[in-house]
Design a protein around this nucleic acid. Structure first.
Lengths: 154, 154
DNA sequence: GATCCCTTTCGGTCGACACTGAAGCCATCG
DNA sequence: CGATGGCTTCAGTGTCGACCGAAAGGGATC
């Protein structure tokens, strides 16, 4: 007997959430992300999310606030409706990833400062120099690579 | 009255450790890394690190084990000396960063699986498709970029 | 303006993890 | 072979943050 699509999807959502949990995003936040990526229709209220994901209203509220804040989810209110609707903002994923890349390269600022402190003692600076060169290269190349990113089709 | 170089260096080490603490590396682990990058001489025993960084022997031991495990620090034992000596392994930083890059791109596996689950329903798959394309591009380009990395001079 | 319903806020609980310090372990040396 | 000295292991402590559920807050409708 085969498993239904929706069942598989919720397993997928769980994997999805688990991945981002390792990156520091709360489990429930990851579940919201995964769910909003594949749900039909695309918009959901906080109450619906709470029920679907079996999470408390408080947790949903906190995590939605966070996700809206980083831009991955957009909130939409409509006249005549009390409940706000939330949906994925696919476009924001580019900035989300960009932040990760720049975070990696940002170590260069540190190694650079360190090199300055050790100026005048090249022998001692040698270890740092190796690391600094790597990060220096990254902070050149990563932004450059990012510029070459293909525009997403309409 | 100016501040001594060593004082500034320990402030730098603290900033260094703080940065990596945000990435999930224990504070003391980060301090060890920063310290071993700039100390003179380059090798230190666990006891010395414990004293210099004012951390318990237990914490030093645990964190050294971790750092040796990920390759960023190498342990060296010498005949006739009980105390092992630890030093930075600059070379390992390449793999350290590479792991971070591949971790980012690895989301593509997830989005890909999701796309498969939604095959046959292009409308519903649209949101995921946008994200999947981005990660697809990344998992092409990041490894390619990495290959072009300049070899570190001897 | 009163009621209803949805959301947000807030105190409280639970689990995870960094860190400590003491006890155990093992190699070195007398 | 015993003593010394340093590293590792382990139980215990404290902190931090995710999560829950109840109460407060604020629109929308009557």
């Amino acid at each position: 007997m085969s498993v239904g699509r929706e069942t598989r999807l919720s397993a997928w959502i769980e994997r999805f959430a688990a991945h981002f949990a390792e990156e520091g995003i709360p489990l429930i936040g990851g579940r919201i992300l995964g769910y909003l990526l594949v749900c039909q229709p695309v918009e959901r209220t906080a109450a619906e999310l709470s029920q679907e994901l079996e999470a408390s209203s408080g947790s949903i509220s906190t995590n939605l606030k966070y996700l809206v804040n980083v831009g991955l989810v957009t909130k939409r209110t409509r006249r005549g409706r009390q409940a706000a609707e939330y949906r994925i903002n696919e476009k924001a994923w580019t900035e989300f990833i960009q932040r990760k890349l720049t975070a990696i390269a940002s170590v260069q600022v540190l190694t650079d400062d360190g090199m300055r402190l050790l100026s005048g003692d090249p022998e001692r600076a040698q270890r740092l120099k190796t690391v600094d060169r790597l990060y220096g290269w990254l902070s050149e190349e990563l932004p450059a690579l990012w510029e070459r990113r293909p525009a997403s089709p309409k």
